[in-house]
Structure formats: structure tokens, C-alpha cells
Amino acid sequence: MTYLIRRILYAVPILLGVNVITFVLFFVVNSPDNMARMHLGQRYVTEQAIENWKHVHGYDLPRLWNPEAAGTGHVTRTIFYQNSVRLFMLDFGRSDGGRDIGFDIRQRMVPSLSIAVPVLIIELFLSVAFGLAVALLRGSYLDRWITLLCVAGMSISSLFFIIAGQYLVARVWRLAPISGYAGGLESVKFLVLPVFVQVISGLGANVRWNRTVFLEEVSRDYVRTAWAKGLTESGVLSRHILRNALLPLLTTIVVTLPGLFLGSLITESFFAIPGLGSYTIDAIQSQDFAIVRAMVFLGSLLYIVGLMLTDISYAWADPRVRLAET
């Protein structure tokens, strides 16, 4: 318990650092004046219009230190404070376009997760199965070809997987709609193709990684002992190798958690699915900095939570790991 509290406290400076980075990027490199000009159009812009825009969005405050305000107002009545402290309360404020970001995020979470979760599960299952198979056949021609195939798969841009998937499955074979989304059970029809494409595009790297993980375990002494005892193949696989390879596998899963949230960036926007990924892309393309800032914060929060979960799951998977010591 104390460990958890310590970890959470440790996360605070990191999130603060993230905020400093975004702050530097958005307010120091570019003055709010530029942002206003950007949104209002480059030409034919009056000083007054810029001032108005800045005031409406709260960008007319000083950056770090407000000499005019009284007491704690020195620090609180500034852009940095206003923009970063609110985020810690998970209050994302309004976008530069005037919409409530928090509401948008809650609404768009469902489609995003309904792609990310199936992808995670199917990918894990397939890559572990293939990884094990290849590790057992190590040194054979099949192993060599599958490894080469994995490298080739890694070398293909995810854009091509999406384009090819859309073209073949949706256009030529007409098995699924090309893009779009519907609520409720209807959505399954729309989700099949994006999930399939994303699983395929990640398979190469994952199988290769799992192969190295399993190979490391297969050559250990305890596995030889298990074979020598005359255990069945499935027994050695599931009881010995898989359990010992669990730790590195867990790490990869957790590392991909925030990646899934963002890996859907491209997929969602290609398949026109109203999730968080396409939300971010739209924000980037319309240069809505408030949304980008909110998503940066949310992404790093998820990453840190993921790191914490890794440590906890380590302790669960391997009794030798004691949390208090780490």
C-alpha cells in the first residue's frame, strides 16, 4: 500500500515535467499572439481581434509570473498554472473551438476501446502461439522463413496494411464496409476490418520479440530437466516455459497499452471511427492546441499508470519480486 502511494507521488513530478514540455512548446516557442493570428487568419487581423481571442481563451495572462495579482495570484493567475493544474484534476477545459474536451473524450472513449481491446487480446494470443511454435522449431528452415517473414512484416508501413486491407477486403471481396461506425451491436460489422488490419500489421514485430523471449527460456537448464523427466510437450510448454516467459511478456503488453491508444490514431482516421485517435488527428490538422495539450497529458497519464501496473503484475506473476524493494 505504501508502495502504491509512493509510486503515485513519484508520478506527480513526471506529469509536471510533461506539462512543462507542452508549455514550452506551445507558449514559449509560440506566443499566444501567433496562435490567435493562426486561428483568425494570417491577414486582415486587428489588434483588437487578437486581444479578444486571447481573452476568451484565457491566453492573455502572463506566462509564468503575474506581477499584478495579489498573494498567491502571482503564481495562479498565469497561463502555466491555469493550463496545467486544471489538468491534474482531469478537468480538460474547452477546446480552442469552444467544445468541452472532457465530454468529447468520454464520448469517444467507447469506440477507441472497442478497437484497442480486441486487438490487444487477439494479437497477444496469436503472437504467443506463433512465437512458441517458432521457438520449438528453432534452427529449421521453417523457423528461418518465418523469421524472415516477420522482418518483412515489420518493414511494411502500417499505412500499406490499412490501404491494402481496405482495398482487398472491403472493395474487392466486399466482406466488410470500407469505413464508418455505428453505435451498439451494429458496430461489430464496422470494427472487424480495423481490428483485423491492426492485428496483422503488428504481428511481425510481436512474433519476433516473443520468439527471442521463448528462445532464451528454452535453452535454460530447468527446461532440459523437465524434458529429461519425461514430461509431455504441452506440459513443458504451458507449465514451465510459458510461466517463466510471463515477465517479459507482461512488460510488452503494458508498454503497448498507451501505444494501442495511439496506434489507433491512423487506423481510426482511415476507417472514420469517431474515437480518440481521430479526435487527436483532427485537432492536429485544425491546429487546436487545447485538445492536443489535453491528449498529451492523458497519454502520459496512461503510460505512467501502465508502468505502475507492470510493477504490480510482476509481483503477481513472480513471487520473487518484492514491491517494497524496487
Binding site: T22, R293, G299
Partner: peptide, 15 residues
Amino acid sequence: SSVPGVLLIASAALS
């Protein structure tokens, strides 16, 4: 590394 890569790149590139 806690900032999702694409977003960090996007923010910096936008700026």
C-alpha cells in the same frame, strides 16, 4: 517517453 511519441512529435512539429 511518457508523452506518446506521435503527440510529442506533432506538438513540436506544429510549434
